[in-house]
Write a protein that binds this DNA or RNA. Structure first.
Lengths: 229, 229
DNA sequence: ACAAAAGTGTTATTATTACACCCATGA
DNA sequence: TCATGGGTGTAATAATAACACTTTTGT
């Protein structure tokens, strides 16, 4: 049977928290269409490459981050007929969550890769193609996954304090959480946090115990968005 | 820039409940590869067609169901290099939830479309390509969405009783729910169910009020899987 | 009258929230 | 000693789970 030919790409929504702000990795486009606009990093899937492998490859090209240092999951696929004016491109978007990095690294085909606050990008029409929609869906996915999975830890370094984790939730959700109730809930939820022997005073005040992410994949009961503080 | 050409298809996981069993729509393949095996219905995305439009078109070809009669959402995309031995095919899977239908309708390129219990299909290696994996992910998605969205109503006719809705949850989750607590929870959750003026005795016993699906998109609090009865 | 399912009431348990209070460090 | 965040206790409220009991039909 005859069938049309498509180009297939992967695009990445790489989120991290920098300066108490949710930020996303973007590249500046060097050529038309959308020349000089920002875009999500991405690229063509290779001839003999799996989709997730392509996403991991692009991620490493842009950030030097490898699987195991980031959470990477498929987000959604976008294929409206004229989303790229040059040709019919279907893109499989992936969502990556990472701890704050030393420095983003410029990739092969990316003019410059840099972190930019999500809110700024969604307000201004600064993103090329349908990338604002993709970013929006990625952020919503991250927000809801924080509620019922332990993915908040994906934004933290390997060892972190409870209040560092709490700030992740506050930034991603845009709410304030009661530090005392959050602490109890996070530490009492079986399998969520694994205590280490170490403490730190890097957040000021009394030394805080350091934790690692536990092994569970779902939080029960979930960590819903409470209020105030 | 050079890039490989892909074929892009949509595949459908169409779920319904028949005879107190979760069933999925499958077609029998008439040709190799996987000749005479079952497969999820699907087909190529057309030249100038959006992905969701393609999914809706395939759905209508197979079942005569139109948007508005079913819930249709994107599920996930599968593109392992040799998932189809003939060529490089990336498939965007969609999940459809429908009320029990009069009769499935044979489509243009499908030998025969029929309902088959999900459990049977997942146990036996009866499904072609990677369709067992796609089905598995579709069923898991349906199970979890029933918890925090009002999607259980997608398996019901336009007007339904609370106990018909409860049976949906019992079948999809494979649990028993307390009819009295379920009734209270379903009817008290703001915006979930809209009462009509009608009642029915089709389930036996005292007449039950008929409801329509409400307008909310999320259940708060969620309908978690309780026990016993 | 009886079976069967609809629907309400009540109570024990558990989770959530708000907030008082003490602890251990750096400056 | 004081400010800063870490961490525990506790009581009011809300949600859940279990189950007794009344209601309204068909047969």
């Amino acid at each position: 049977m005859a069938h049309p030919a498509f180009a297939v790409t992967v695009d990445l929504v790489v989120l991290t928290i920098r300066e108490d702000t949710l930020q996303v990795l973007v590249v500046r486009r060097g050529e038309a269409p959308f020349k000089n606009k920002s875009a999500l990093p991405g690229g063509f899937v290779h001839e003999n490459e799996d989709l997730e492998t392509a996403a991991a490859r692009e991620l490493q090209e842009e950030t030097a981050l490898t699987r195991g240092e980031v959470h990477l999951e498929q987000l959604a696929t976008f294929g409206a007929p004229h989303r790229d004016p040059r040709m019919r491109v279907v893109t499989v978007a992936y969502l990556a969550l990472a701890a704050e990095l030393p420095q983003p690294r410029a990739g092969t085909d990316a003019a410059e890769a840099r972190w930019q606050p999500v809110d700024e990008l969604l307000d201004t029409g600064e993103l090329a193609f349908d990338h604002a929609e993709i970013l929006h869906i990625g952020v919503e996915r991250a927000r809801s996954k924080l509620e019922y999975t332990p993915l908040g830890t994906a934004f933290c370094p390997p060892e972190f304090t409870v209040s560092e984790l709490r700030r992740v939730y506050e930034v991603v959700w845009g709410t304030r959480l009661d530090p005392r109730n959050f602490h109890r809930k996070a530490t009492k939820t079986e399998g969520f946090l694994v205590p280490t022997d170490h403490t730190t005073t890097r957040d000021g005040g009394r030394p805080a115990r350091l934790y690692r992410a536990g092994s569970i994949k779902l939080l029960y009961p979930p960590l819903l968005r409470s209020t105030a503080a």
